[in-house]
Design a protein around this nucleic acid. Sequence first.
DNA 1: ATTGTGGCCTGCCCGC
DNA 2: TGCGGGCAGGCCACAA
Length: 257
Amino acid sequence: MPELIEVEVYRQHAEAVVGRTIVDVPRIDELGLRGEDPHDVAEDMIGATVTGTNRRGKLLMLLTDGPVIGLRFGMTGRLIVDGDAHIDALIYGGKGNKDVWDRYVIAFDHGDLRIRDPRRLGGLELDPDVSRLGPDAATISGEQLDVVIGSSTARLKSRLMDQYRLAGLGNLLVDEILWRIGLDPAREARSLDTAQRHALADEIVATVADMTERGGSHTGDLQEFRFDGALCPRDGTPLARRSIGGRTTYSCPRHQL
DNA sequence: ATTGTGGCCTGCCCGC
DNA sequence: TGCGGGCAGGCCACAA
């Protein structure tokens, strides 16, 4: 579920643990450690005091006087601070909420922080290489997006979802943005002229801001029409459902060109 | 190098 | 009610 918007909310809630010291890592899911040894990772975290938080795209970081703790949420991860699960409205599937899905638990001198992730596609990485991520989509400028798109022959949607080029956009946000601005997700990225690239950057920023205000990535105007046979809420044309870049994609064949 | 594909995991929903 | 298939808002390794 989490795209940039949700992760930013997680970051704000994670601020509550600034100043606390890690005393234990009682649960750590080996699957999301990129091959690192769970015991070693836990040992490196214990004793560290959290000094702040940061976010780049969908990557949440806990800054400490030791390693930076990078947290990823995959498709279904949620952040729970001191037992309080925020963004309940965004719960994957609508209801599930079980302790056994707590894949990572970081215990502090008081309270704890956990990642509850049914599908185990999230992860934890110490000192993640943030420089490999593109600029954050929430504040992307026209000039920056011009670089992101460059002369790429990839499909526009794929380029916008490439976290190494532009960080933060997921499947839902990209579909919403391209629907709003009227661009075909399947067209070649490089086919956008300069004016279109600048307009698209503005649309990205505006859409992220709008959906943040509304309450999340799932609150877009297109969201409720993401099903087979739905009609475009703007012009009534049957929406196209395609797989682009391996992601299910909805678009309007009439006004997205 | 860039781009596209498949797979990882698990839970849920739909149709039989 | 039970079961199988398909699907899911992310990311990575790998192939062409």
